[in-house]
């Protein structure tokens, strides 16, 4: 039985934090039933809560772009301790790091680059608590650290050799067979994007999948610092007949002195898909890998705008035949 406004407010607060017990829930129900005063009070709290929630997150300073990794002592006696600590940070995604971002494109230009490269920092979602402050796609740092420190990968990603290069890949993790009327382009597997993150304020929905991270620290002899990449996209049927913007992005990352990561160049190529399940749209791009690049991050993005963004969860988005050719290897 609720006797004071404070008791009532405590219950509402708990409800908003999803920490309300069944009996508290019954109390709240009973208090609200037929009581205009409490209903109004409740609505005020809810309105306040939803409006705070609607405000765009400001906790992260977008100018804060330098990522400094924790100082690593190399003495073997404490290496194990450090690895444990690092693993813990890794699991919780809370690196005490900063990142330096160079917004410029790759300093190496090439005739092949001109038509295909539109420099962009394909920032990802609003997933705070991870690495959203970085210009690199989500989880890139985790995957880079998996390669650098031979740590286990997260999210079902696996470490393997792709094109004779050590790489973290998520192709298998995101792999699916035919689904929602969409058939894979070749063989019986394709990549399915996770559900889009919807921003109802701006009416956009977006998902970026960091699909592969290549270790380019010691590339095989003959590598000409040039990468050709291609991928095809498709989407399931949409009642709104809306198109989806798909993009393929490559980021060159320099692991400076082992304590800083610098995004030294990137390319992002965009296409708008049609609404035909039977056809796949293909992106081809080339990228001149800047000197000093230690890692190459490959990510795919699907994005929707306008009212159809609000119903993006009704649709599925796919990629297939992601091919990277490291020229000279």
């Amino acid at each position: 039985m609720i006797t004071t406004d404070n008791d009532f407010d405590i219950l509402v607060s708990k409800a908003l934090d999803s920490s309300l017990s069944k009996s508290d829930s019954d109390k709240l129900n009973a208090a609200l039933k037929g009581n205009l005063n409490y209903q109004r009070r409740y609505c005020n709290f809810i309105l306040q809560e939803s409006l705070i929630h609607w405000e765009s997150p400001s906790a992260v300073d977008s100018n804060e772009k330098v990522v400094i990794f924790p100082f690593w002592t190399l003495t073997s006696s404490i290496a194990a301790v450090l690895i444990c600590m690092f693993s813990a940070w890794f699991i919780h995604g809370s690196f005490n790091t900063e990142i330096v971002v160079n917004d410029q494109a790759s300093p190496i230009s090439s005739p092949r680059e001109i038509n295909t490269i539109s420099t962009s920092n394909s920032n990802t979602s609003n997933n705070l608590g991870n690495l959203s402050f970085s210009s690199l796609p989500l989880h890139s740092l985790n995957y880079i650290n998996s390669l650098a420190y031979k740590l286990p990968t997260i999210d079902g990603a696996s470490i393997s050799f792709e094109n004779e290069l050590p790489a973290v890949t998520r192709d298998d993790e995101l792999g699916t067979s035919s689904i929602k009327g969409v058939l894979p382009l070749k063989d019986n597997q394709m990549i399915q994007f996770n559900e889009m993150v919807v921003d109802t304020t701006s009416q956009t929905a977006e998902i970026t999948e960091t699909l592969r991270v290549y270790d380019l620290k010691n590339p095989p002899a003959g590598f000409q610092n040039f990468v050709d990449a291609s991928v095809s996209f498709n989407q399931s049927y949409s009642e709104t007949s809306s198109t989806t913007e798909f993009s393929l992005s490559l980021h060159a990352v320099d692991d400076q002195f082992g304590d800083k990561l610098i995004d030294v160049g990137s390319t992002s190529h965009v296409l708008n898909s049609d609404n035909d399940l039977s056809t796949w749209e293909r992106i081809d791009t080339s990228f001149a890998v800047p000197e000093g690049t230690d890692y190459l991050v490959v990510s795919l993005t699907a994005k929707k705008y306008g009212p159809s963004a609000l119903t993006s969860h009704m649709q599925s988005f796919f990629a297939d035949e992601l091919e990277l050719t490291f020229i000279g290897i």
Partner: peptide, 26 residues
């Protein structure tokens, strides 16, 4: 854990969330 009875759902006044009021509260 929490869901309100149908009666309460019908009782909650939509006017509390009028767009103009929302703008002022915001």
């Amino acid at each position: 854990k929490i869901h309100f009875s149908t009666e309460i759902i019908e009782e909650v006044a939509a006017e509390e969330f009028d767009s103009q009021r929302v703008a002022v509260v915001q």
